[in-house]
Amino acid sequence: MRARVFVTLKPSVFDPQGRTIAEALHSLGYQNVEDVRQGKYFELDLATTETATARALAAEVADKVLANPVIESYRIEVE
């Protein structure tokens, strides 16, 4: 199975890259883009066919390595 892990800075953490991109978009006239948060995206190829197992494995890897719980949170999609 494939798991997708989306890691983003927690809402309380200032994201200087996201802000810079938002400002650039505003200067290009995209006023309707209100805010941008930048994050990371991972694709994990997992040797399992069980959705629950895949999700648990991806969560474990995200907790332990892919995200830093002090500043980041994550979301997992499995297919």
């Binding site: 800075l9 953490v13 200032f14 994201d15 200087p16 890259q17 810079t20 830093n68 002090v70 500043i71």
Partner: peptide
Amino acid sequence: PGAMLRNRGL
């Protein structure tokens, strides 16, 4: 304790 972010000026 804590974490590091990108420099404010990027």
